[in-house]
Deep mutational scan, measured.
Amino acid sequence: WIARINAAVRAYGLNYSTFINGLKKAGIELDRKILADMAVRDPQAFEQVVNKVKEALQV
C-alpha cells in the first residue's frame, strides 16, 4: 500500500511521509489500504484528497 500511495502522490509533487503528515494536519482519517485503492480506482477523488493535504501543508 505504501508503494502505491508513494507513486501516486509523487505525481502531485509530494512524497509519502509528507502526504501522511498532511493527512493528519488536514484531519483526514482514511487508512492506507483505502488510500491505495482510491489512487488506482478513483483518481479524481484521490486528487481531491491530495489537494486538501496540500492546503493543510500550505504547499
Rank of each mutant, 00 (worst) to 15 (best):
A45Y: 09
A7V: 13
G13W: 02
D31H: 11
K25L: 11
D37T: 08
V53I: 05
N51S: 11
I2M: 04
R4Y: 07
V53Y: 01
V59T: 13
V53A: 14
G27A: 10
R10H: 13
A8H: 06
L57K: 02
V50W: 01
T18A: 07
A36H: 10
V53D: 00
E47L: 10
S17A: 09
L35T: 02
R32I: 15
E47M: 08
V49E: 02
N15G: 08
E55Q: 11
K54L: 09
A26Y: 03
D31S: 08
E47Q: 07
G22D: 01
K25N: 09
V53M: 03
I5G: 00
R32Q: 15
T18F: 04
V40L: 11
G27R: 08
V53L: 04
V40Y: 12
D42N: 09
K33Y: 14
R10P: 01
Q58D: 12
A8Q: 04
V9L: 14
D42E: 09
E55V: 12
T18G: 08
R32W: 13
V9S: 02
F19M: 04
L14V: 02
K33M: 15
V50N: 00
V40P: 02
E47C: 03
E29F: 11
R41I: 14
P43E: 07
N15F: 06
I2V: 08
V40E: 15
L30H: 05
V49M: 09
F46K: 00
A26P: 01
A8K: 05
Y16N: 01
L57F: 07
A11M: 12
V59P: 15
A56P: 02
A45K: 13
S17N: 11
K54D: 02
A39W: 08
A36L: 14
G27C: 03
I5C: 01
Q48R: 12
Q44R: 11
D31F: 04
D42P: 01
L35Q: 02
M38G: 02
I20R: 06
I20L: 07
Q48H: 13
L30C: 06
L57I: 13
D42W: 07
S17E: 15
Q44D: 13
L35D: 01
N51C: 03
L23N: 00
N15R: 06
G13K: 05
E29M: 14
I20K: 09
K24H: 12
S17L: 13
A8L: 11
Y16D: 02
I28A: 06
M38N: 02
A3E: 15
G27T: 06
Y12S: 03
K24R: 06
A8Y: 07
T18Q: 13
Y16T: 04
K25I: 11
V59N: 12
E29G: 13
F46G: 00
R32A: 14
L23P: 00
R10D: 11
D31W: 03
K25V: 11
I28G: 06
I34N: 12
E29N: 15
N51Q: 11
I5Y: 02
I34V: 09
K54A: 07
F19H: 00
K52Y: 07
Q58N: 12
E55T: 08
V40M: 10
R41D: 14
L57N: 07
A7K: 15
L23E: 01
W1I: 15
D42Q: 09
K52H: 09
P43D: 05
E29K: 12
I5V: 06
A45G: 13
T18I: 07
A45C: 02
N6S: 14
L23C: 04
F46H: 00
N6E: 15
A8C: 03
K54T: 14
I5H: 00
Q58H: 06
A3C: 10
K52P: 01
V40G: 14
N51K: 06
R10F: 06
V50A: 05
A39T: 11
V49H: 05
W1R: 02
G13R: 04
D31N: 08
T18P: 02
L35P: 00
V50M: 05
D31V: 04
K54H: 07
K33L: 12
A3K: 14
R41C: 05
A26C: 02
V49F: 06
G27N: 14
V40K: 09
I5F: 06
L14C: 02
N21Y: 08
N6L: 04
I20C: 04
V50L: 03
I20M: 14
V40W: 11
I34P: 07
A8M: 04
A36Y: 15
K33R: 11
A39L: 06
A26I: 06
R10E: 15
D42I: 04
L35V: 07
I20H: 07
A56H: 10
Q44W: 14
A45R: 13
I2D: 04
E47V: 06
I5M: 05
I2R: 11
D42G: 02
I5T: 01
D31E: 11
D42L: 06
G27F: 08
I2K: 09
N21G: 07
D31T: 09
K54P: 00
G13P: 00
T18D: 11
A3Y: 05
T18L: 14
I34E: 14
Q48S: 10
L14G: 01
A36G: 09
M38R: 02
A39C: 02
E47W: 04
E47A: 12
M38W: 07
M38Y: 06
A26D: 01
A7Q: 15
R10S: 14
G22T: 04
E29C: 06
L14A: 01
Q44G: 09
M38H: 03
N15I: 12
A36S: 08
D42F: 07
L30E: 13
L57Q: 07
I28P: 02
I34C: 05
R41H: 13
L30Y: 11
R41V: 15
I34T: 14
R4F: 13
F46E: 00
F19K: 00
L30A: 14
G27Y: 07
F19W: 03
L57T: 09
S17H: 10
V50S: 01
V59R: 02
A39I: 11
A56Q: 09
P43S: 04
G27M: 06
A3F: 03
A56M: 06
K54S: 07
I34F: 12
E55M: 10
R10I: 14
I34L: 12
I2H: 04
N6P: 01
W1E: 15
E55H: 08
Y16R: 01
E47G: 12
K24M: 13
G13M: 03
A26F: 02
Y16Q: 03
E47N: 08
